[in-house]
């Protein structure tokens, strides 16, 4: 049984007066993949963006309850969001490479954290590209603009960029929804490799994907956590009728 890395207890979230998350309590274990599924608008992105405090950027967003990372309160007074995000990286739905070279994209994180040493940066860039299975394709093109890569390559670049910061947790918000099946398969393979070293939380609309890559699955509905458990159990023997209906595609 592995340690709990992230735990939410009775987490409530409001955008203005609209409540988007209601009493979410779940624990995400270390070096495992936790998938979050549920129909559109049920609060999956909202929840995952709480974990690295991305919602700080949203005006009128209010949170109560507890969210713990390695036992420390993510929303506590002594938590520095910038420091937190070095340890909890995020890959977004739409690939968002910076309009600069491939090299500069990967080196961005280490550089903003003060690394100047060229050899060290070279090493990190190579390591990160290898770890994201992109080195063979772009190892010779490091000076090329990242914007010219294909969508799937851009997304793996964004993963490499995240790895370069050496986080402990990586959050994926529908990382494949803008990609073709082959690129999707590559990203899934990658996630299966990364879970040996990182704690992963992934939001997905793709049931097979959740079944393939995750160890645990959480089913959200209208801002509430309906069911959370081992992926196998959720997919084969769900407790709740609504979970079963959603998984079998009978609604939503």
């Amino acid at each position: 049984m592995s340690e709990i890395e992230i735990e939410s207890r009775n987490l409530d979230l409001w955008y203005g007066s609209a409540q988007a998350l209601k009493k979410i309590s779940m624990a995400m274990p270390e070096k495992k993949v936790t998938a979050i599924i549920g129909p559109s608008g049920c609060g999956k992105s909202t929840f995952i963006r709480c974990i690295n405090r991305m919602n700080d950027l949203v005006k009128g967003c209010r949170i109560t309850g507890e969210l713990l990372f390695e036992g420390a309160d993510i929303y506590g007074n002594d938590m520095d969001a910038v420091e937190l995000r070095k340890k909890i990286g995020m890959v977004f739905q739409k690939p968002n490479p910076f309009p600069m070279s491939i090299y500069d994209n990967i080196a961005y994180g280490p550089r903003v954290h003060g690394l100047r040493n060229k050899e060290e940066l070279d090493r990190i860039v190579e390591e990160s590209l290898k770890a994201s299975a992109l080195w063979d394709e772009v190892g010779d093109l490091l000076d090329q603009s990242a914007v010219d890569l294909s969508g799937g390559q851009q997304q793996r670049l964004c993963i490499a960029r995240t790895l370069a910061v050496k986080p402990k947790v990586i959050l994926f918000d529908e990382p494949c929804s803008a990609l073709d099946p082959i690129s999707t398969a590559k990203i899934e393979d990658l996630i299966n490799m990364l879970k040996h070293d990182y704690t992963i939380v992934i939001v997905t609309h793709n049931m097979q994907q959740a079944a393939r890559v995750s160890d645990h699955t959480a089913f959200f509905l209208l801002g509430e956590l309906v069911e959370f458990g081992k992926t196998k159990q959720i997919f084969e023997l769900p407790d709740k009728k609504s979970t079963e209906d959603y998984i079998t595609g009978r609604f939503g």
Binding site: V82, R85, M90, F98
Partner: peptide, 26 residues
């Protein structure tokens, strides 16, 4: 695009780093 700002913040960059290194050059 807002996605670039989010991408920078998600890597642990500060506001000024994000503005000066990503947003302004873009």
């Amino acid at each position: 695009p807002g996605g670039l700002r989010e991408g920078s913040f998600a890597l642990g960059a500060t506001k000024w780093q994000t503005v000066s290194r990503v947003v302004l050059p873009s």
